[in-house]
């Protein structure tokens, strides 16, 4: 489990540094793989029935295969697209991520000193905040989608740890939610590419009345 957390933090930090869209999607997929493994670990530590396998399988299908696949297909259609930003912006997101990590640990120390899953809680806070900061600081729609999924993964991980397995219906609902959100976002992004020839969200300001 500790190794998983180390990898997770590594992937999240990597994600704040990536500017190439394809790599961002790969990062996202690998992050989701780690979440899925975490699901299996937590699931098998509590029991051996279908409920233990289900979250992990769902994560694999939805977050590792389907969502990154859809985004990847979209990215392949985009030619010459990079997150063209000054390096300072990337550095700011990494710095923010570092701060969030410290904050997460400080929070865990305060709220539940000596708890078993303190590393996981801290890393999920890191993921939630980093996802938000990706959505705020970056301009490309694809990276913002990645940010949303990262946020979602963070919440999911935290929920999984806290509740030790949600009811199946709730989990299905959560996955459906994310799925639909991403489908809508992917459609919107491809429409945006058609209309504006770019996925830079700052051009959307032109639409304001």
């Amino acid at each position: 489990m500790d190794y998983l957390v180390v990898f997770l933090v590594l992937v999240v930090f990597l994600q704040t540094r990536v500017t190439d869209l394809k790599r961002a999607v790969v990062c996202l997929a690998s992050q989701s793989v780690i979440i899925a493994i975490a699901c299996f670990v937590i699931g098998f530590s509590h029991g051996n029935d279908i409920h233990a396998v289900m979250p992990g399988v769902l994560t694999l299908i939805v977050k590792v295969i389907f969502i990154p696949g859809a985004v990847y297909r979209l990215v392949q259609k985009l030619k010459n697209e990079r997150e063209i930003v000054s390096a300072s912006n990337v550095n700011y997101s990494t710095m923010a991520a570092a701060l969030f990590l410290v904050m997460g640990y400080a929070l865990v120390e305060r709220l539940m000193p000596g708890a078993a899953g303190r590393d996981i809680v801290a890393s999920s806070i890191l993921m939630i905040m980093t996802g938000l900061s990706l959505m705020v600081l970056r301009k490309r729609a694809i990276i913002q989608i990645c940010g949303l999924i990262t946020l979602e993964n963070g919440i999911y991980l935290l929920g999984l740890l806290m509740t030790e397995g949600l009811p199946l219906v709730v989990e299905l609902g959560v996955f459906l939610d994310v799925l639909i959100a991403v489908v809508v976002l992917v459609i919107l992004t491809s429409r945006m590419r058609l209309s504006f020839m770019t996925t830079d969200t700052s051009v959307m300001k032109k639409l304001k009345g």
């Binding site: 938000l132 705020v136 301009k139």
Partner: peptide, 14 residues
């Protein structure tokens, strides 16, 4: 009127 600034407000609040 920029969405990312609104998300930023949410983040700051969090």
């Amino acid at each position: 009127g920029s969405v990312s600034i609104y998300i930023g407000y949410t983040m700051v609040a969090m």
